[in-house]
Deep mutational scan, measured.
Amino acid sequence: VTVHVDGVEYDFDNPEEALKFAKKVAEDKNGTYEVHGNQIRVT
Rank of each mutant, 00 (worst) to 15 (best):
V1Q: 04
T2L: 05
V3H: 00
V3I: 03
H4C: 15
H4Y: 14
H4A: 08
V5F: 10
V5H: 06
V5P: 01
D6F: 07
G7M: 05
G7F: 05
V8I: 13
V8P: 00
V8Y: 11
V8A: 09
E9S: 14
E9G: 10
E9M: 14
Y10G: 00
F12T: 00
D13V: 10
D13E: 12
D13L: 10
N14G: 08
N14I: 07
N14T: 13
P15M: 15
P15Q: 13
E16G: 06
E17H: 06
E17W: 05
E17T: 06
E17P: 03
A18Y: 01
L19T: 04
L19Q: 04
L19Y: 07
L19G: 02
K20A: 14
K20Y: 08
K20P: 00
K20Q: 12
F21S: 03
F21V: 04
F21G: 03
F21P: 03
F21D: 03
A22F: 00
A22C: 05
K23R: 09
K23Q: 14
K23A: 11
K23L: 05
K24G: 10
K24H: 10
K24C: 13
K24V: 08
K24Q: 13
V25R: 05
V25S: 08
V25K: 07
V25F: 07
V25C: 14
V25W: 09
A26D: 01
A26S: 09
E27F: 12
E27C: 15
D28A: 13
D28L: 12
D28P: 03
D28I: 11
D28K: 10
K29H: 15
K29E: 09
K29V: 14
N30F: 06
N30H: 10
N30S: 07
G31Y: 11
T32V: 12
T32M: 11
Y33L: 13
Y33G: 02
E34F: 09
E34I: 12
E34H: 10
V35F: 07
V35E: 05
H36L: 14
H36M: 14
H36V: 14
G37V: 05
G37E: 08
N38W: 02
N38F: 03
N38A: 07
N38V: 05
Q39S: 11
Q39K: 10
Q39I: 14
Q39V: 15
I40L: 04
R41S: 10
R41F: 15
V42S: 01
V42F: 04
V42K: 00
T43P: 04
T43S: 12
T43R: 11
T43N: 12
T43V: 14
